[in-house]
Design a protein around this nucleic acid. Structure first.
Lengths: 250, 250
DNA sequence: CGGGTGTTTGATTTATGTCAATACTAGTGG
DNA sequence: CCACTAGTATTGACATAAATCAAACACCCG
C-alpha cells in the first residue's frame, strides 16, 4: 500500500488533532499500527489526552520517570542532552508517528537519559504506560510491529555512534540525509526525494558532533556538487546514487 | 556487602568454569543475580552449556538472531562493527558478569547490530532466550535487578555517544577510565583504584573514535600529570579528583 | 634468540574548530 | 506595507586538535 501524505509538504501549520483515533491518518504508521487499523476504537479508548506545545518547548526531562508515553501526532521533536558547559548532543529526531519515551515500555521505571524538545509546534497523544503496553500486546502482529520499531531505533543508535566515531563530516551528513529521507518516506512525508526538514544548521551540528560553521560548509559541498538542494527548510536529494556512495565511503 | 574479588588482579589465566552454579562466585553480579544467590540450582538447571574461546575470537556475528544469550563468566569481550573499508567502532566492553546479547531478551528476534569478539580467553555460560527470560521473571526483585542492568547499559550507550560527539580526546579517555573502574569495582575487580585493563591502545582508539597514535599521546598526558599509571595492562588511577574534573570539563 | 605485535616518538598534514563580520529571512508591531 | 529585530546562514582569515606517515623501540612468546 503506497503511503498517502497526510499533510502537504509545504504546510507549516500544525495539523489539528483528530477528534477520534478512528479517522487518524497517522495511526497506521505508529508502534500500535496494526491495532490502529483493525480496531481504532481500542486506541481511542486508551488515549488519555491530546497535548499541544509550541516550537522549542522542553516537554520531557532528563532523569524523569515516565508514567505516560506519547505518540507524536504532528510536528518534529528531538532527544538530546546538554553537558555542563552547554555543549549539546542530539541523539535522535522524532518524526510524526514516533512514540516518544518508548523505552519506558520496554524498561518501565527507567529514568530518561535525555530530554525531549519540540522543533516545530507539536501535537501529542498521551497514553499511560500500562495502557500502551496493553495496546501492544493486543495481537501477535501488533507485538511484532512494535518490536520491529524498537529494533530499528536501537540499530539507528548504534549506527549514529559509529558514524560520529568513524566517519568524516561529509559521510555523517550523507548518512543523516539518507536515514531521514527513508524514515519520512515510510510515512508519506517525502515525495520525489523532497521533504520538509525543519532543522537549523545548529541542530544538524548537534546531531553529528560538528560545528555550525562546518555544517554550513559541508552542506555547501553537497550543493555545489549538485547532490542536494536545501532552501527554506526544503531538502531535495538530486543525486541519491552519489549520496549513497559518500555515505558509505566517507 | 563488600564484593570479593574472584580472580587475582594479576592472574591472566582463565578462571576454570565452575562445575555448578551453586559455587559460582560471579552469579550475584549478573543480571539474574538475585536468583543466583537465593536459588542457585534454578540457574544451574537452565544453563545449557559452558563455552570456552581463545582471545580474539568473533563468537557473535552482526545480523544474526540469537537463540541463546551468554553470561560472560571470565575474560573480557567487546561489541563492535566494521565499516566497509575496515574502520572499526567499538560500542562496549564486556566485563565478567555481563550478559552478552542481552537485547535479545528485551527484543526477541532482533538481528544484532554488532559483532562480539573476545579480548582475552573467555568462558561463557549459555542459556536459551526463553529460559533466560524465565529466570528473570523468577521474582520481583529479580526483574528489578535485570531492568536496572538494562537501563544502565542503555544510559551508557547514550553517554558514549555524547562523549564522542562532544568531548575532546582527553575528556573521552577520562570518561572511559571512570566508567570502567566503576563497573569493575562493582564486581570486585578493582582494588585501590587499580585494575587489569587488557586492551590495546588500538581498542581504546576504536572505542573513542580516535587514532592509536593519538590515544598514546593522550595517555601520555595523563601519565605526565600523574593522574594515571598504565603499564603491562595494569591501570592505576592516582588522582581521581583530577580525572573527574577532566571528564567533566574536557 | 627472532619475529610479531603493540608502543612510543618526531615531523608534517589536514579536517574541523574558532572568531568575527556581513547578509539574509521570517516574524513583529505600527 | 514598511521598518525593526532576532535568529539563521554565509563567508573569510586564522588556530588547533587530531590524523597521517614513518621510524625506532619494547615486550612477549614460543
Amino acid at each position: 500500500m503506497p503511503p498517502m501524505p497526510f499533510i502537504s509538504l509545504t504546510d507549516r501549520q500544525p495539523t489539528p488533532a483528530p477528534v477520534s483515533c478512528s479517522n487518524c491518518a497517522l495511526g497506521r504508521f505508529t508502534i500500535y499500527g496494526a491495532t490502529a487499523q483493525g480496531d481504532p476504537n481500542a486506541v481511542n479508548t486508551r488515549r488519555r489526552e491530546v497535548l499541544n506545545f509550541p516550537a522549542g518547548r522542553i516537554f520531557l526531562r532528563e532523569g524523569k520517570v515516565q508514567k505516560q508515553v506519547y505518540t507524536l501526532y504532528s510536528g518534529w521533536a528531538f532527544r538530546y542532552v546538554t553537558l555542563s558547559d552547554g555543549r549539546r548532543q542530539i541523539f535522535q529526531l522524532h518524526l510524526p508517528g514516533d512514540m516518544l519515551a518508548q523505552e519506558s515500555l520496554l524498561m518501565p521505571g527507567i529514568q530518561l537519559p535525555f530530554s525531549v524538545r519540540s522543533l516545530t509546534p507539536v501535537t501529542l497523544c498521551a497514553f499511560d504506560v500500562a495502557e500502551a503496553v496493553g495496546l501492544i500486546h493486543h495481537s501477535q502482529e501488533q507485538e511484532d510491529r512494535s518490536r520491529a520499531e524498537m529494533r530499528r531505533f536501537f540499530a539507528g543508535l548504534h549506527r549514529r555512534l559509529a558514524d560520529i566515531g568513524r566517519r568524516s563530516a561529509l559521510g555523517r551528513l550523507a548518512q543523516l540525509l539518507i536515514e531521514t529521507e527513508q524514515r519520512l518516506l515510510l510515512r508519506g512525508l517525502s515525495q520525489n526525494s523532497t521533504f520538509l526538514f525543519p532543522v537549523s544548521q545548529e541542530h544538524i551540528a548537534d546531531m553529528l558532533g560538528l560545528t555550525t560553521v562546518y555544517v554550513n560548509r559541508t552542506l555547501d559541498r553537497l550543493r555545489k556538487q549538485k547532490i542536494i538542494t536545501f532552501d527554506r527548510k526544503i531538502m531535495r536529494i538530486l543525486d541519491s546514487g552519489r549520496l549513497y556512495e559518500i555515505a558509505e565511503e566517507e
